[in-house]
Design a protein around this nucleic acid. Sequence first.
DNA 1: ACCATTTGTCTACGCTGTAGACGTTACGCG
DNA 2: CGCGTAACGTCTACAGCGTAGACAAATGGT
Lengths: 237, 237
Amino acid sequence: MPPSMKPSASPAGDKARLSRELVLSTALALVDSEGLEALTMRRLGQELNRDPMSLYRYAANRAALLDGVTELVLDELAIFPEDPDWQSQLRNIAHDLRLLALRHPNVVPLLVTRPLSTPLGLRPLGTLRPLEQILSLLIDAGFEPSDALHVYRAYYGFLYGHILNELQEFIVDPEENEALLRLGLHRLPPKEFPRLRALGPVLTDYDGAAELDQGISILLAGLAAPLAAAKTSKKPQ
Amino acid sequence: MPPSMKPSASPAGDKARLSRELVLSTALALVDSEGLEALTMRRLGQELNRDPMSLYRYAANRAALLDGVTELVLDELAIFPEDPDWQSQLRNIAHDLRLLALRHPNVVPLLVTRPLSTPLGLRPLGTLRPLEQILSLLIDAGFEPSDALHVYRAYYGFLYGHILNELQEFIVDPEENEALLRLGLHRLPPKEFPRLRALGPVLTDYDGAAELDQGISILLAGLAAPLAAAKTSKKPQ
DNA sequence: ACCATTTGTCTACGCTGTAGACGTTACGCG
DNA sequence: CGCGTAACGTCTACAGCGTAGACAAATGGT
């Protein structure tokens, strides 16, 4: 074989033209499989069989690359603002987002921290789309726009909180996790942590979906109350 | 002045013995004033007027240093499990934690992401103390231990979510923020983001404490219901 | 077949965390 | 007091990081 045609000496040898989508998706794959800290310009370049510097044609810098990855992940979330039943909609979205987080646990830190470094007005459009769509949903359901914003905040706040909670207890494989947990709990000073130590057995089985669902129920009940009140107070008046 | 006594040529010249507390507290100060990325071993060493390598006597590596900082911050949270009124307790703690987050906004990313990288059993004790104390609180209030765990999760989940929410919209000084917001909103494609654009004015004034309080009310109402039900069902039986 | 523009590469710089060997100081004990 | 030991601090060095700037290669329109 003459080396003139395919100089792909290395096994990973697709030399197709790069594109932002390709860069971001392999970045995501890298993060999914090896964690956030594995996503370096050099490593990603090597993953794509390109010079690291070529990446800068598709992302201004590493931070922008991270933003691109979060945007890519959030695009996996499908929202259908047409559905008139806003409560079941919010419930479905919650579960979808939960599954999305479980699918990309290593991206969750980005999801929750990147917005902290970027003023709302300058965030990637993809990360604002869920906000817009949920606002639509709520306004169409009869909420005043400003109330819709409050509902959104309570809802999304709870949702993100739950995801963080669940991911803390999840981590890697349950086998090692359980062993580690027992070991760790045993290490706790019994005088200081009696409750936690006693909860050891309960801590191991954690039904995230159920816990989320039940939290959403509580929240929806509380959030729907003023809406119902407004409706009934408008009727008799 | 003979240079034999005080060779402190540089202005920041206290050459007292180091200690873990000193290292961590100046690390925290550095993070508070200049952000997370300013906390490098070299920079911290220079802040303490010491060789960067000396820090490794007090923290095994940079990750451990970050854990130490989070622990230090969480120690600012005072919980008094004696108070019999668990609802007002949880409400107070929520507001305390909110203020703590506003006092150390740059540490919040650590608060929410460090636990994701550390199995529960191996976390710094300081970060587990709030969990233990709130469990105590709830169990003393009459919850079954496993229910207490569920309540804790819903409560803390919401709390962390709210903090993330509020910090996203807060950021730096309101002046620049408002200008940026207007600019940013104006940039949004009107066809795609009509709701968000219309909410511009409302977005600027955000009463985090009120929003938190109201969310907590909803949550507490929902969480207390089963407890009350259990009490009344036990009486007639 | 040409040129212009986009895309990829190369080199180099200052920064990072930290391993390992080495002085230096402080402290307990005789 | 002095001595030995252990804790503390420093130095040097290395591999890896993000990325600026100059350059080569490829691509696509005319």
